[in-house]
């Protein structure tokens, strides 16, 4: 059972379980603070493929395979595969879906694709629309640079605040029953455009939507930041989330103003995590 709670949140009565997960990353991510937590760290970001796009697809295929192996399941036991990536026509995910040979629902929400997929997967499970759903997403630094910025070998000077798109993939197996963390609720966020157009400063562009989604989540569920041990967002960059509170409060709908007045500056324990390793208690999907 799923019920609509508040304006834009789903409350899952029979909380879907996350049976297993698979994470595969490139060399740069492997050297990061979460390096030891990934299932596979590749030394070669091309993973023996002849294009960045094929490499990205390979990462996702491996992540999906690991998630299935850990749960001891096979492809034909999975009802749907839900996922997406950053490429045009979500190329990498669609080709990975060809390999996985599961019924496929393609998603696109830019950086929010991972949580968007997880939210829809949980929804399908809790309404009885599926027994096992694989939710996955992938990105590759070089394909993202190529599509959104400059060729990888182009010698332009990046500003000191430039962010780095993750090379890696993650997949999680969502099921109606079993052991594992449970998804209790999901809040679908709005697109909040604050006029940031710098392709190197994605954090500043996404932060207002992230805050809007988190505030909406609190409002819909009638809880505050204290309700959670940890609030994790992906890839906003240092201190950005705190930086955007005031203008967002002014831009948001009247309800959000109340939420903000309850939400003192220090209360919002918004911790930053690396884009690849987002572990979220709160299944919020900020659009970006």
């Amino acid at each position: 059972m799923t019920i609509l709670k508040g304006h834009q949140s789903w409350l899952f009565r029979d909380k879907p379980a996350l049976l297993s997960s698979g994470t595969v990353v490139g060399p740069f991510e492997g050297r990061g603070p979460l390096g030891r937590d990934f299932d596979i760290v590749h030394d070669d970001s091309l993973v023996g493929q002849d294009s960045w796009e094929k490499a990205e697809r390979t990462y996702l295929e491996e992540a999906a395979k690991i998630a299935l192996q850990k749960a001891g399941m096979t492809q034909d036991q999975i009802s749907f595969y839900i996922g997406g990536d950053l490429m045009n026509q979500i190329t990498s995910s669609s080709y990975a879906a060809r390999t996985l040979a599961m019924p496929y629902i393609g998603m696109f929400g830019a950086c929010s694709t991972s949580m968007e997929s997880l939210a829809i997967a949980s929804y399908l499970i809790s309404t009885g629309g599926a027994k096992h759903v694989l939710a996955g997403t992938c990105s590759h630094n070089s394909t993202a640079e190529k599509q959104f910025r400059y060729p990888t070998e182009y010698g332009s000077q990046k500003p000191p605040y430039a962010q780095y798109t993750v090379t890696g993939a993650g997949a999680v197996l969502v099921a109606s029953e079993g052991d594992g963390p449970r998804v209790a609720a999901a809040t679908i966020g709005r697109v909040v455009d604050m006029g940031i157009t710098d392709p190197f400063n994605m954090g500043a562009a996404m932060a207002p939507a992230a805050v809007d989604t988190i505030v909406s989540h609190f409002r819909d569920l009638g809880v505050g930041p204290d309700h959670y041990d940890l609030i994790v967002t992906g890839g906003l960059g240092e201190g950005r989330a705190r930086a955007c509170q005031r203008p967002v409060r002014q831009a948001s709908h009247p309800d959000a103003q109340d939420a903000f007045s309850r939400l003192r500056h220090d209360d919002l324990r918004l911790r930053q995590a690396d884009g690849a390793g987002r572990r979220q208690r709160l299944a919020a999907a900020p659009p970006s």
Binding site: P160, Y161, G195, P247, V248, Q250
Partner: peptide, 25 residues
């Protein structure tokens, strides 16, 4: 021109974001 087309809130946020981001040396 692009900046002028933004709403006051957007402009304010832009200023804030610019202030927070590390400056180019």
């Amino acid at each position: 021109n692009k900046i002028k087309k933004l709403t006051p809130v957007q402009q304010e946020y832009r200023q804030l974001a610019l202030k927070r981001q590390p400056a180019r040396p």
